[in-house]
Design a protein around this nucleic acid. Structure first.
Length: 569
RNA sequence: CGGUGAUUAGCGCAGCUUGGUAGCGCACUUGGUUUGGGUCCAAGGGGUCGCAAGUUCGAAUCUUGCAUCACCGACCA
């Protein structure tokens, strides 16, 4: 490609609306342009990168035995009613109507469509297992799109679905997909980790997320500093503290704490460590027929944070987790938020493992403006259950048994699930077994955020001059940068010859034939991150040499003109 | 959904306090100059000042409403 026939569209200045580095560089390097909140046009350079990512994903999926399909982006609402997600999905699901007033959705994912397809197409166990994927635009009406294509509303995703007769067979495909994902991220040249994940709203059993490690990531990943253990903080188990619980040494004493409504206030006022306090959260319980909504108290150590996912997975806690209103708190507890504690409550009390390990701690007195000091479990509060309901923090024991927890930020770029029978059941997707009986299939589902990978790759690979693409996904393999071609016939001739030669060899090379000063050309190529610059100038032609500059290492070296092809072997 | 802020040329911004029909840098066009790291000089083109209503002789500027975009928060006991 010649720059004179190309749309480079680089920007010298950083657009004001871009916050993270990948978003800024994607705009400056001319990869994408914003169209509306969370929606982007991919310019030629960006699309080249996107297609390279897509092709790696496609090749590895095919190698792993998955069949490519393409499903519609717009889906009829009745499919979603059949699966139950028309009600469950919430406002992220964009709903629309056609001219006949028939309801549709913009597909945020395609379980319904594929399950319906398989229900219709597959009728015998002999046709299983089956694994199909597509690379398709998805739409999720995110609460808050941000960071450019990292969390867009419209985005490109590879999603795959597998169908099986047995859990063992599903596990086998799941393992194959796990390995395929590792190969994909290896080939992309990214620093990533598979981590144990929550199955979230889609439901199901086993699940791993693949995270690209980067400061700007939106997820917290808990690692062990002594093993391979890695889990999303949402999912990482917080073990009970080791050792025996100290015995009570203080009497329960009511203390006045006017206007101290937060743990920090109370800890400061009473001059105790927040680790010696507990906070008590009132949430809604599951509805029981013909009765007012029950409320439940969750008790955590003052310095810990509630893990909402763990909490809402508890049997008697409402899902999604909902905090009680001020009025509900007043009715149930008899005081306002800020003075609640576990002592004397006549509602169910669930205590976190770490909070349950305390002795002589500070708690709310269930009386406005008062707390208790010297609170002790079993003596002052007898009716409670102990559960893991907090987020792990740095320094906790790793749940794998080895080492301590370290927390890093990650960008979720892949997610694999064992779905089980949820969708197959709802859409009546089954086959006849060897025994001639109908059996509902069990499913796996495997996603990769293709467009997000482009942003994640930049987050991990850039410097002050611009993007440093891993070579597998660079928009161009190399660029020819001639010095003062307009004046030098020798330079022009060498550049043209080299361009033709590389083109014929199938090398994706950008020939900078603009009448620009060298500085302008260097700056542009560094910004868009071309891995190799082939610099042709008068001063080296006498020796029949050109200069090679490596974008990743910054190294410059000389090379005989005729050896250029060796760079691409 | 709540809070905050922004909206003036393709991009980045000034002008608004104190109303008088718009300016700077980059980018773009033309000519010249320069040519191994974002040259320099000159001459140009480009804006219903987000939309609507109001106040006024007169509104980018004051008032009201709306829209869009962005940032922060959505553990608070």
């Amino acid at each position: 490609m010649r720059t004179s026939q190309y749309l480079l569209s680089t920007l010298k200045e950083t657009p004001a609306n871009a916050e993270v580095i990948s978003h800024q560089l994607m705009l400056r390097a001319g990869l994408v342009r914003n169209v509306a909140s969370g929606m982007y046009t991919w310019l030629p350079t960006g699309l080249k990168v996107l297609r390279k990512v897509e092709n790696i994903v496609r090749e590895e999926m095919e190698k792993a035995g998955s069949l490519e399909t393409l499903m519609p982006m717009v889906q009829p609402a009745d499919l979603w009613e059949e699966s139950g997600r028309w009600e469950d999905y919430g406002p992220e699901l964009l709903r629309l109507k056609d001219r006949h007033d028939r309801p549709f959705v913009l597909g945020p994912t395609h379980e319904e469509v594929i399950t319906k397809l398989v229900a219709n197409e597959i009728s015998s166990y002999k046709q299983l297992p089956l694994n199909m994927f597509q690379i398709q635009t998805k739409f999720r009406d995110e609460i808050r799109p941000r960071f450019g294509v990292m969390r867009g509303r419209e985005f490109l995703m590879k999603d795959a679905y597998s169908f099986h007769l047995s859990a063992e067979c599903l596990q086998k495909t799941y393992d194959v997909m796990f390995d395929a994902y590792c190969r994909i991220f290896d080939r992309l040249g990214l620093d990533y980790r598979p981590v144990i994940a929550d199955t979230g709203s889609i439901g199901g059993e086993a699940s791993h997320e693949f995270h690209v490690l980067a400061e700007s990531g939106e997820d917290d990943i808990a690692f062990s500093d002594a093993s391979d253990f890695a889990a999303n903080v949402e999912k990482a188990e917080a073990l009970a503290p080791s050792g025996t619980k100290p015995s009570p040494s203080l009497a329960l004493t009511e203390v006045s704490t006017p206007n101290a409504k937060t743990i920090d206030d109370v800890a400061t006022l009473l001059n105790v460590d927040s680790k010696q306090t507990v906070k008590t959260l009132i949430v809604l319980g599951n509805e029981i027929e013909d009765q007012p909504t029950p409320v439940i108290a969750l008790v955590l150590r003052g310095d810990h944070q509630l893990n909402e996912i763990k909490a809402e997975n508890l049997a008697n806690v409402a899902s999604p987790l909902t905090f009680a209103s001020e009025e509900e708190v007043l009715n149930a507890v008899g005081c306002n938020i800020g003075s609640i504690g576990p002592v004397g409550l006549n509602i169910p009390v669930i205590v976190d493992r770490s909070a349950a390990h305390l002795a002589d701690f500070v708690s709310g007195a269930n009386k406005d403006g008062f707390h208790f000091s010297g609170t002790n479990w079993d003596r002052d509060c007898t009716d409670y259950t102990v559960e893991d309901i907090r987020n792990v923090v740095e320094g906790d024991q790793s749940p794998c048994g080895k080492g301590k927890i370290v927390i890093k930020r990650g960008i979720e770029v892949g997610h694999i699930f064992q779905l089980g029978e949820k969708y197959a059941q709802a859409m009546n997707c089954g086959v006849l077994t060897e025994q001639g009986k109908n059996k509902i299939l069990t499913m796996g589902c495997y996603g990769i955020g293709v467009s997000r990978i482009v942003a994640a790759a930049i987050e991990q690979n850039h410097d002050k001059y611009g993007i440093k693409w891993p070579s597998a996904i660079a928009p161009f393999q190399a660029a020819i940068v001639p010095m003062n071609m307009a004046k030098s016939a020798r330079v022009k001739e060498t550049a043209e010859t080299m361009y033709n030669q590389l083109q014929e060899a199938g090398i994706d090379v950008l020939f900078d034939d603009r009448k620009e000063r060298p500085g302008v050309m260097f700056a542009d190529h560094e910004l868009i991150g071309t891995p190799i610059l082939l610099i042709i100038g008068e001063r080296n032609l006498d020796n029949q040499e050109i200069e090679i500059k490596n974008r990743i290492t910054g190294e410059k070296s000389m090379m005989p003109i005729n050896d250029v092809m060796s760079l691409f072997k």
